[in-house]
Amino acid sequence: MIRVVINGYGNLGRGVEQAVSKTEDMEVAVVLTRRDPAGVTTLGAPVAHLDDAADWADKADVCINCGGSATDLIEQTPAAAALFHTVDSFDTHARIPEHFAAVDAAAQAAGHLTLISAGWDPGLFSMLRVLGDAVLPDGETTTFWGPGVSQGHSDALRRIDGVLDAKQYTLPVASAVEQAKTGSAAGLTTREKHTRECYVVAAEGADRAAIEAEIKAMPYYFADYDTTVTFVTAEELAAGHSGIPHGGQVIRRGATSEGVHATIGFELALGSNPEFTGAVLVAVARAVVRMAERGEVGARTVFDVTLADLSPRSPEELRASFL
């Protein structure tokens, strides 16, 4: 059995535990939390404080880091890489090279393997972008996100002073999706492809105008998009925005010869963003353990993972049933 550490137990951590429960070759060794362990209820996994992480270094095979990308994973993954082979879902695309370098240094120093930015985007969508570019070199790729709730962006909202709770929806612009399918989306700007809607619960007396201005100016998250901020009560947020759905699609449109075109499409429709992201992280954690057993050390991405390493099935079964 592959023994898994879940580092952080918010929506994503719970999704990871749910995903592990559906495997036959993995089990949760421990959930690590910054909170009082006595106050954390899991599906059955034991809970320990993050300060005691070193006690589990020789009792686990891989650690899945479940913090937020805005502030947590930048510190969480390098720290965990000193103790474990690790996986994270770091999703601030513009900062991936910086994060990769920091994690690689920590993992190399400890002799561990760590794979960053594994989820569905970055992650599965990244793999499809590479596949589309390789198969149809004469073409263009367009990625759309939503409609749905972004965990990372919602987390970034909740970290703003004066914000008690928040949900952020990413919405693709329908006309832009149609343009991508016909191969005429090359000139579309970031702002023309998506909009963002934020529902925010502000603290009593908080400066709502300042909160809205900070949201709309936030780099990487909202500054490049038409963003709508709606202030609601905690009751309204709970009643109308309790779910965490998401999805999106990658479209590669290219020419195989003069006047002959082909389109590759990959689409996700997710009832629960954190549960699906957790399922991806669990599959990638399996691959990390196998890669580490072969002696690999340092940082990796999903581009370095084989389908065979992701799967719990034997090579013989894959060839017989899936090829």
Rank of each mutant, 00 (worst) to 15 (best):
A186G: 15
A186H: 04
G187A: 12
L188S: 13
T189R: 12
T189E: 11
R191E: 14
R191M: 12
E192R: 15
K193Q: 10
H194S: 12
C198A: 14
V200H: 03
V201P: 01
V201I: 07
A202C: 12
G205R: 06
G205W: 07
D207I: 05
R208I: 09
I211N: 04
E214W: 10
E214F: 06
I215K: 07
P219V: 03
Y220W: 14
F222P: 12
A223S: 15
Y225L: 13
T227A: 14
V229C: 12
V229Q: 08
V229A: 13
T230K: 12
F231K: 13
F231V: 07
T233V: 11
T233L: 08
A234C: 06
A234W: 04
L237E: 02
A238Y: 02
H241F: 05
S242L: 01
S242E: 00
G243V: 01
G243L: 01
G243I: 00
I244G: 01
P245D: 02
H246A: 00
G247C: 01
I251T: 14
I251F: 14
G254V: 03
G254E: 05
G259I: 00
H261S: 11
A262Q: 04
I264K: 03
G265N: 13
G265L: 06
L268S: 14
S272C: 07
S272Y: 02
P274L: 02
P274E: 03
